[in-house]
């Protein structure tokens, strides 16, 4: 099956937040009232009922004030840290089309996925004790529709399609931007997690942090160590100790009380 992806060309984002509204409506989320905090950002952070946030950041770039806006949501990694950390089979699934989906019916609310995610995306609901995030509208995609955010984007900043095609478009766009004088332009698609199915075109690709994106995201090494070497060593130790105890009993037997002769 073709791996699907979302392309976010941040150079075309006007910060209208239509994608945020479309996401809320399609996924039937309650709207949360925010507080004005001297920013054009809707809410300070993602929330259990708010899966798609246009991050807004003002910075001096190339000697001029720059408004850096980037849509932030689940990146649908090829090697998902959330899935690696999740103990409950079926709570997090990676679909053949590359979408990483959460099934709340199987979620136990441990929150390990939040720690496993290199992008800090999943959010635990204090009321339902389940974790939520963008599903890339797996229900719409399954029915042959494009995700709600992409359907609604008025500027073609967002594109949905086969990942391979979108990577080409993104690289082409970066070349154009460089030709236009944006020497730092480039593509951000998380090679450290096997590639993400959300691909960004950034004007300032060497500093993704300016857009609120982590630089060189990878599965946290503590999670990788736990789910890798620690598990092998400990499993071997558990089984080895139990088998060792059995063999010890067979070879040496119990420690009997000495008779009077020992006195």
């Amino acid at each position: 099956m073709t791996t699907v992806a979302k392309l976010i060309d941040t150079t075309l984002c006007i910060g209208c937040k239509a994608c945020e509204v479309a996401c809320q409506e399609w996924n039937e989320q309650e709207f949360t009232l925010g507080v004005f905090a001297n920013t054009y950002q809707t809410l300070p952070d993602l929330a259990p009922n708010f899966w798609n946030l246009i991050k807004f950041n003002e910075e001096y770039k190339d000697g001029a004030q720059a408004w850096l806006m980037a849509k932030y949501q689940c990146m649908h990694c090829a090697e998902p840290g959330c899935l690696k950390a999740c103990p409950s089979p079926g709570a997090i699934v990676q679909l053949p089309n590359g979408i990483v989906d959460f099934h709340q019916d199987n979620c136990i609310g441990c929150g390990y996925c939040i720690t496993g995610c290199p992008f800090d995306v999943p959010r635990l609901s204090p009321t339902t004790k389940k974790v939520y995030k963008c599903s890339l509208c797996s229900d719409r995609v399954g029915a042959g529709l494009t995700p709600a955010c992409i359907r609604t984007c008025p500027t073609n900043c967002l594109t949905f399609g086969a990942r391979a095609d979108l990577v080409q478009i993104a690289n082409q766009r970066a070349v154009e931007l460089k030709a236009d004088g944006h020497k730092d332009a480039g593509v951000y698609d998380g090679p450290g997690v096997g590639g993400t199915n959300v691909i960004y075109v950034l004007k300032h690709a060497s500093t993704p942090e300016s857009y609120g994106l982590p630089k060189d995201p990878t599965i946290p090494w503590t999670v990788a160590l736990w789910k890798g070497p620690l598990k092998w060593v400990a499993n071997a130790a558990f089984i080895g100790t139990a088998v060792g105890a059995m063999l010890h009993y067979l070879k040496f037997g119990p420690k009997e009380v000495h008779g009077d002769k020992a006195d």
Partner: peptide, 24 residues
């Protein structure tokens, strides 16, 4: 690990490895 939503990420990253390590 009990209260992931109110713990700093650095602590959670340490705990997610050390908890199973101590348990082993």
């Amino acid at each position: 690990l009990w209260f992931p939503e109110s713990m700093p990420r650095a602590l959670r990253l340490g705990a997610i490895l050390l908890h199973p390590a101590c348990a082993s």
